[in-house]
Write a protein that binds this DNA or RNA. Structure first.
Lengths: 330, 330
DNA sequence: CTGAAAGCGCTTACAG
DNA sequence: CTGAAAGCGCTTACAG
């Protein structure tokens, strides 16, 4: 049952059926009713492939993230899907694994299928495919990290302030030797978190102490291990994302070191398990759902043409004090 | 740049270009080379919408799950995406929230876009849309829970044995009052986990003690709270999925009850945070990645026509003894 | 082995 | 306001 069947049954042209289906106001009430009835009786559903080909746009949006298993992105994707499907769009998910090559292939595929728009947590912010998509009038919203093409919108968190907040909290609790497990300095997020840390440390006249953990579980584990094996281990630790925190917790547990008495801990990111680990983690949390909602809103503004100038929105982190930092909630 | 551009440049017909693109062997080597060169020089990429319309099949597969934020499904979706994209398919993700109505709408949308196949963790296993998809020759692989249409394939875990294993472990550790926080008896997974529990308890001459937790965090919290507030609280607890376990842990932590000395705990599902909570959780784990790989393999067998008879594959759970059960690893 | 042509199911100028 | 017709970019019988 295609649009022709409906047209025949309603005794109108396919053009009229199409207009009714797309809520074109210039259709006579009589015709509209006839079409609606035929649609209902036949159980007609428009073929999205045909519509997409004709419009040169598939009714879908994409979330391109490094790894959906990371609770940060799972939360983001969940929110995006909710809003996208409410707006009539289908959701495509791509995992880049932080590989520029995978990102390249996925962005190319999104162009090939004429996606309506995408939310991209970029692995390679300079990729030519980003510009290619924008050239095709496919809006791109950068998430977490910005991209170099100035036509893209962006939704980011204030990473610099995040680690600075963590440092100040620990200084307030009396710590002076505060180390940072950093992640991927070649990413904006990673670099900004280091910046905030260094700034706050210097401001307090303290020496920064940074180990790289690559934003991954194993990296966090090795970095923490290196710090704790040092003959002068730090008294406090900031871990700059949730995956590295898992690695850090593994080392801490295996080494028998007591948190927070022997080592105070503050983690960036607030995954749902943060309050159930031992001890419950003090975190600086990104408002992930709000950021995702913001990203979809920016995307839909572009799609509808309601806005044409690029927008960048910066969300503040939020301090969630639990017990791992050794400071009690007020 | 379309297929016509390529045909012109290579001085062949579009039919020949199409054949080369689709690896039709009946193309002369000379023609093939000319087409390939033109494709490369023009940077031509086939329009997937057009191809989809013509073939009546979009080159994408879908994962329909209750909630991608549940680490169980995040892991499943991650694996499915890896394999699907390696096979040239795009991945669509739908969250049903355990709502039959949402499931209905999503399955309908998948039909509307002529998806190549789907992996479905069904909320409503009897939904007519499942049969509609199968009627359209769109293969459906049921995941976790089976569906009633016998034409669908299925990949499930041996839930009955899972809880039975947990019960036997706790009995072996000397427990006799072992309660179960159950989830949604109207789902196959939930019901089977209860069955296994009851069977193993009866087998040992013990009285079952079951509270419903709805498979959700809040439900697990309320169920555990009810059990612990009882004037004869159980000495051991089995929680039948990872979300309810989070709820249970919250109550346990707030009540100050010591695990495993005052309450032994075994959880079904083995999310990555299971070994970092306090105390590390003893779990019965589903081989989620393997199950997902299996599901994609079954799907692709259907797509290629390599298999036409339905297959159901049952994966065993695996016991991961940590400290929450009060039994030390061997 | 190769090409001309039909057709997948829509939308949208264009004409009336 | 409504319809006839072109066309989106492919694939695939069909004929040669």
């Amino acid at each position: 049952v295609t649009i022709d069947t409906v047209a025949e049954k309603a005794a109108v042209s396919v053009a009229t059926v199409s207009r009714v289906l797309n809520n074109d106001p210039h259709v006579g009430a009589k015709y509209r009713r006839r079409v609606q009835q035929a649609v209902a009786e036949l159980g007609y559903r428009p073929n999205r492939l045909a519509r997409g080909l004709r419009r040169q746009r598939s009714q879908s949006i994409a979330a391109v993230v490094s790894d959906i298993e990371n609770p940060h992105f799972a939360e983001m994707v969940r929110a995006v899907e909710d809003l996208a499907s409410a707006a009539g769009y289908r959701l495509i998910v791509d995992n880049t694994d932080e590989s520029p090559d995978k990102q390249r292939r996925y962005l190319q595929a999104l162009a090939d299928e004429r996606v309506t728009g995408l939310i991209l947590s970029p692995t390679d912010p300079n990729a030519g495919e980003i510009s290619m998509l924008l050239d095709l009038d496919i809006p791109v919203v950068a998430f977490d990290r910005q991209v170099s093409d100035p036509r893209a919108d962006a939704v980011v968190a204030d990473n610099t302030r995040a680690t600075a907040m963590a440092v100040r909290l620990l200084i307030g609790a009396g710590h002076r030797d505060i180390a940072l497990v950093a992640g991927r300095l070649d990413t904006q997020t990673g670099a900004e978190r280091v910046d905030g840390y260094q700034m706050a440390m210097r401001e307090a006249g303290l020496a920064p102490r940074i180990v790289d953990g690559d934003f991954r579980i194993v990296g966090g584990q090795e970095a923490t291990d290196a710090l704790l094996r040092d003959h002068t281990p730090p008294s406090a630790l900031i871990v700059s994302n949730n995956l590295m925190t898992i690695g850090a917790l593994r080392v801490i547990r295996d080494s028998g070191i007591k948190v927070p008495s022997q080592l105070a801990l503050v983690a960036v990111d607030d995954p749902f398990w943060a309050e159930f680990v031992a001890p419950p983690l003090t975190t600086v949390a990104q408002p992930v759902r709000r950021m995702a909602e913001d990203a979809v809103a920016l995307l839909l503004e572009r799609v509808s043409g309601a806005r044409t100038i690029p927008r960048r929105s910066v969300h503040p982190f939020e301090l969630r004090i639990r017990s791992s930092c050794g400071t009690r909630p007020a």
